[in-house]
Amino acid sequence: MAGRKVKQAATRLLVVLGLLLGGSHAAWALKPDRVYRYTPDSLGLAYTARLLKTPDGASLNTWTYVPDAQANKHVTIVLAYQDAGNMSNFLYHAKALSAAGYQVVTFDYRGFGHSSDFALNPSQLYYAEFAEDLRTVLKAARQQFPTHRLGVLSLSMGTIIASMVATDQKLDFLIGEGFVTSPAQFVARVKQAKGKDIVLPAQAGQYPALLPKVKCPLLVLVGSQDAFTTLADSRQLVQQGRHRELVEFAGSHLGGFPTLTSKPEDFTTFGDLYVARISAFLTKEGVLKS
C-alpha cells in the first residue's frame, strides 16, 4: 500500500513537471500546442467546457472550474496565458485558485489548443486578435455570472493582451506576472539573450501609453532574476497609478507559482503562497470581503 502511494505521488509529480515545462515558460514568440496533454477531469477537477464565438467569427474553447460551494468567493478569474502551449498546461494553476474559492475560466487564443485555426507567424510576439478573444471570454463570464467580481490573471505575453483589454473594459482587478511594459524593449532583450528576432504588430508602439490608463486595482508579480520583464520595469509600472502593488519573488521569468509554494516537494501545495498574495491584495482593495 505504501509503495502504491509513493508511486502515485511520483506520477502526479511528473504530471506537474510536464505541465509546467509545457506551458509555464515563455517561448520567446508564438509556439501554440494543439494537443491537450491532460484535461481537468484527469485531476478530478469539476469543470464545464464551452465554445464561444468572437464578433469576427472565431471559435474559442473554454474550461470553467467551479469551486466548492462552501468556499466560493463569488470572484471569477480569467487566465490569459503567455505565448506557448495551451490551457491544459495550467491545470494546477486553476486547481490552486479553485481550491481557494475562486471560479476560474481558462481559454485558448485562436490558433491555440482546440480554438479556431488562425494563421500565426511563429516569430511574432502577439496578435491584436488575442485581445478580442479575451474580451469575448470576459463578456461571456459577466453574462453567466453577473453577481461575481471579475478580473484577469495574465502571464508574460498575456499581460499585453490583458492591459489592452483593461483600458476599454470594466475589470474589478488585473493580476500580471512577467509584466511586459514595452514590447520593443522585451524584443531587444530576447535578441540579446537568445539571439532570436521577434516581430511585433504595427500597433505595438502605442502599447506603453496604455499602461497608465489601467484604472482597476493592479497586482504585479516579478522574479528578482527576471532578465526579460525586469524588477525595475515592474516597479516603474506600479508607480504609474494608484491601487497598484508589487510582489517580488526569488526567481526568473514566470517562476512565480512554483516559487511561491509553501512545500515545493509537495505538489498539493503548488502555488498556495501565490494564491494567498492574490487574496490579500483583493481583500485590501475591497474585491474580497475581509
Rank of each mutant, 00 (worst) to 15 (best):
M1F: 15
R4Y: 08
V6M: 14
K7P: 01
T11W: 15
T11Y: 13
V16S: 12
L20H: 09
L21T: 02
G23L: 03
S24M: 06
S24D: 04
A27V: 06
W28Y: 14
A49H: 09
A49D: 10
P55W: 07
D56G: 10
G57F: 12
A58R: 12
S59H: 01
L60H: 05
T64C: 12
T64A: 13
Y65E: 03
Y65R: 02
P67W: 03
A69V: 12
N72T: 05
K73V: 00
V75G: 01
V75W: 01
L79S: 09
A80Y: 04
G85S: 06
N86G: 11
L91C: 08
H93A: 04
A94C: 15
A94G: 15
S98W: 08
A99M: 09
A99H: 09
A100E: 14
Y102P: 03
Y102A: 01
Y109H: 09
G111Q: 08
F112S: 04
F112L: 04
G113Q: 09
G113A: 12
A119K: 02
L120A: 05
L120N: 03
Y126L: 06
Y127T: 11
A128H: 00
A131N: 00
L134I: 06
T136A: 15
K139L: 09
A140Q: 12
R142F: 07
Q143Y: 01
H148M: 14
R149F: 04
R149S: 11
L150P: 00
V152S: 01
S154H: 05
S154Y: 10
M157A: 12
G158Q: 13
G158S: 13
A162Q: 05
A162R: 02
M164T: 02
M164G: 03
K170Q: 15
D172I: 14
F173L: 10
L174A: 03
G176K: 01
E177G: 11
V180I: 15
S182D: 12
Q185E: 14
A188Q: 14
R189V: 04
K194E: 13
G195I: 05
G195A: 07
D197Q: 08
A202K: 12
Q203I: 04
A204H: 09
A204N: 10
L210W: 10
L211H: 04
P212L: 15
K213T: 06
K215P: 05
C216N: 12
L218F: 13
L219W: 08
L219M: 09
L219T: 04
V220A: 14
V222P: 07
S224H: 05
Q225H: 10
D226Q: 06
D226M: 05
T230Q: 11
L231E: 14
D233L: 06
V238C: 13
Q240I: 07
Q240N: 08
H243A: 10
H243R: 15
H243E: 09
E245K: 15
L246K: 06
L246P: 04
E248N: 02
S252F: 03
L254S: 12
L254W: 06
L254M: 14
L260M: 15
S262P: 07
E265S: 12
F270K: 00
F270C: 00
D272Q: 02
D272V: 03
A276P: 00
R277P: 00
K284Q: 15
K284Y: 01
